[in-house]
């Protein structure tokens, strides 16, 4: 169990404590950058900008949210800004939209191959891993962020909601959609894999 980060020390400008914060969360922030942007160079930019910004705004951190959600919020903003820079034609809606995801019509499962019993080394073979990464990459940004924070980084529903400034209900809906989307695409791929095994 890692010792909890002391907000008092951070705000007081304790460099050793900040270095500890960096070491605890840099892996997660880098991974978030990788999953959002899809390449190591952009992920490193997200990582560096996140901690530079954190350092810059630390003195005004009021402790209304936890350090973790504060840090992830900076990181998601950095990632979204970089995505906008890379693909300016895509507008990103983070705010909940009226009626969004009310219908589950578009996430109705269509592939029912049961690949859940395949061994993990087979599922995460080089090709399998690359399919998984590409599939996560192909999620719309709003769903991808929720999925990364909740299912990859293991934040709670509430922490995810706080980080993204969404309601918990909205997070749950997006999570369901993201999970169904990924399941469907992975199922399409692994169904073929199962077929090949039978041949």
């Amino acid at each position: 169990m890692q010792n909890e980060i002391s907000v008092e020390k951070l705000v007081a400008g304790d460099r050793a404590e900040f270095a500890r914060l960096v070491d605890i969360y840099s892996g997660s922030i880098y991974r978030l950058g990788l999953k959002m942007l899809g390449n190591p160079q952009d992920a490193e930019d997200v990582l560096q900008n996140t901690f530079m910004n954190a350092l810059l705004h630390l003195s005004s951190f009021e402790g209304r949210s936890s350090v973790v959600t504060w840090l992830y919020r900076i990181a998601t903003n950095e990632a979204l800004m970089l995505i906008r820079k890379r693909k300016p034609e895509i507008s990103i809606e983070l705010e909940g939209q009226e009626g969004e995801a009310e219908s589950i019509e578009d996430l109705k499962p269509a592939v029912f191959a049961d690949w859940s019993g395949l061994p993990e080394d087979e599922l995460l073979s080089m090709e399998g891993k690359s399919i998984l990464d590409t599939t996560i990459q192909s999620l719309p940004e709003t769903l991808r962020l929720v999925f990364i924070l909740r299912d990859i980084e293991g934040l709670s529903i509430k922490e995810t909601a706080d980080t993204l400034n969404l309601t918990e209900t909205n997070v749950k809906t997006r999570l369901l959609r993201a999970r169904m989307y990924l399941r469907e695409r992975l199922s399409t791929y692994y169904a073929e894999h199962l077929q090949e095994e039978k041949r």
């Binding site: 049961d114 995460l124 990859i152």
Partner: peptide, 18 residues
């Protein structure tokens, strides 16, 4: 099947290899 494969999808992204 949908339940099992959804669970497995989440396990995969949680895997230490990831």
């Amino acid at each position: 099947v949908v339940l099992n494969t959804t669970k497995r999808t989440i396990e995969l992204v949680h895997s230490p290899a990831e």
